[in-house]
Each structure stands twice: as structure tokens, then as C-alpha cells.
């Protein structure tokens, strides 16, 4: 009897998640009347704005990941090593982006860095891109910090640091050759989450008026019928691809097998 309920719960859950996806995919294939076709997908891929906005967002995502890793990995490492009492505070700070809406953040940015301010970041496209990258880094902070911190928990940070120090290594060597490689899987999972967030982000990019993927999806959704679901399916494929990659990386890094 318990088994029956377990299976029905699983079935219900699967249907709940899968049916909308199936419906959406089915609809995206119906552009041509009376038969299934990939017309909607072709239209999306033929649209030069798709490639422009997609590559723009991808570039920013990579930049965000780089900035995020450089910001978070040393911070989390330092907090674990030297300032364990500051951990609750740092965790609180990294959680703030979940509480403060992106729109508040971006209005703050515009107010602080507008063309008549002391640092007119919004005055140039490149300046705005930097601003956007920083904003994305903030948005991704809770996920990045948490995954890196979890990764650090699995290794003996203090002893490994001392071992490396006694062998003559400085801070950069310790971080780059010992700490980062050992939390690589955690960093990557944070990186993929960041990628997913950046690819779908709308508010910041729209208000800073940059040609990102999010606003493009919104634009398409407001004006077309079949292309938006096709785009959504593509976006899902990208996300799942990322998750698959995460698994693969875990599988391939040899020394990580010991922990599994």
C-alpha cells in the first residue's frame, strides 16, 4: 500500500513538471499548420538578434563567473581559515541579493553611477557592461558562496594551508594550486548556476538598456506566438546541458572519486 502511494506521488510529480514542458514543446513544433516542424526553431536561429543577444549574455556570464570566483573563493577561504567568527556575518551579506530585488539594485546603480555622478559608468557601453557584470555577480553571490563554502568544508583547509606554507608556498600558490583545484567541482557547480541566472536575467539588462538574452526573450514573447516556446525549449536544453556537464566534470576529476 505504501508502495502504491509512493509510486502515485512520483507519477503525479512527474506529470506536474513534465506536462507543461511537453505541451510547450508540442506547441513550439506546430508552426506549420497540420504537421510538426522545426520552423519556429529555424526562425529563432535565423534571427541575428538571437545570436547577438545570446553571445552577449554568454560573454557577460563568463565575466561574471570569473569575477565571482575571484571574489568568492579567496573570501570563503579566508573566512574559513582566519575569521571563522565572521562566518554568520559573511553568510548574511551573501544572502542579501535574495532579499533585495534586482530592480532596487539596478535603480541604485543608475542613481550612483549615472552620467552626472562622480563615476559615470552608464556613460559608455563598456562601462555599463562592467556595471551589469557586477550586478550579476551580486545576484549570483548566494549560490556561488554557498557552493564554494560547501566545497571547502570537505577538505582540511587549515592543515593543507600549513603543509603548503611549510613547503615554501605563498598565498597565491596555495589558493591556485591547492585550494581551488580541490574545490573545483564546487566552483563549477557555482559557475553553472551563475550561467543559468545570467542567461535568464531580465530586469538589470533591460533597465540598463543592454542587448542581453533576457530582454530578447521578453521581446519575442510579447510579439510572436510560436517562437517563444521554441526559445524556452532551447533555454531548457542549455540549462540541462550545463547540469550534465557538471556531472561529467565530477566523474572525470580523479581525486574527487574518493569523496563520493
Amino acid at each position: 500500500m505504501t508502495r502504491f502511494f509512493a509510486w502515485s506521488a512520483l507519477l503525479f510529480g512527474s506529470l506536474y513538471f513534465l506536462l507543461p514542458l511537453v505541451g510547450m514543446t508540442e506547441f513550439s513544433l506546430k508552426m506549420r499548420r497540420g504537421e510538426y516542424s522545426f520552423d519556429a526553431y529555424r526562425r529563432v536561429f535565423e534571427d541575428p538578434r538571437f545570436w547577438e543577444t545570446f553571445s552577449y549574455s554568454l560573454t557577460l556570464a563568463v565575466a561574471t563567473i570569473v569575477v565571482g570566483v575571484f571574489l568568492v573563493a579567496p573570501t570563503a577561504y579566508w573566512v574559513r581559515l582566519k575569521l571563522p567568527q565572521a562566518r554568520p556575518f559573511v553568510e548574511f551579506v551573501t544572502l542579501l541579493p535574495l532579499v533585495i530585488p534586482a530592480i532596487v539594485l539596478v535603480f541604485g546603480y543608475i542613481r550612483l553611477y549615472n552620467t552626472s555622478s562622480w563615476l559615470p559608468m552608464t556613460g559608455s557601453a563598456f562601462g555599463t557592461d562592467i556595471l551589469l557584470t557586477m550586478g550579476y555577480t551580486t545576484l549570483a553571490l548566494p549560490y556561488m558562496y554557498r557552493s564554494v563554502d560547501t566545497g571547502l568544508r570537505t577538505i582540511d583547509v587549515a592543515t593543507l594551508t600549513e603543509a603548503a606554507q611549510s613547503l615554501g608556498a605563498g598565498w597565491i600558490t596555495i589558493l591556485g594550486r591547492i585550494i581551488l583545484p580541490n574545490v573545483m567541482v564546487a566552483v563549477l557547480s557555482g559557475a553553472f548556476l551563475t550561467l543559468a541566472i545570467v542567461m535568464g536575467e531580465f530586469t538589470m539588462a533591460a533597465l540598463l538598456n543592454r542587448p542581453a538574452f533576457g530582454p530578447f526573450m521578453q521581446l519575442l514573447g510579447a510579439n510572436r506566438a510560436y517562437e517563444p516556446p521554441a526559445l524556452a525549449v532551447i533555454a531548457f536544453a542549455i540549462t540541462w546541458g550545463c547540469m550534465g556537464l557538471m556531472q561529467l566534470v565530477t566523474r572525470f576529476s580523479k581525486h574527487e572519486r574518493a569523496k563520493a
Partner: peptide
Amino acid sequence: QAYALFPN
């Protein structure tokens, strides 16, 4: 005491 070999 804890060996402290670099796991990677």
C-alpha cells in the same frame, strides 16, 4: 598528524 597530503 592528519597527513595533510594534497588530495588533488
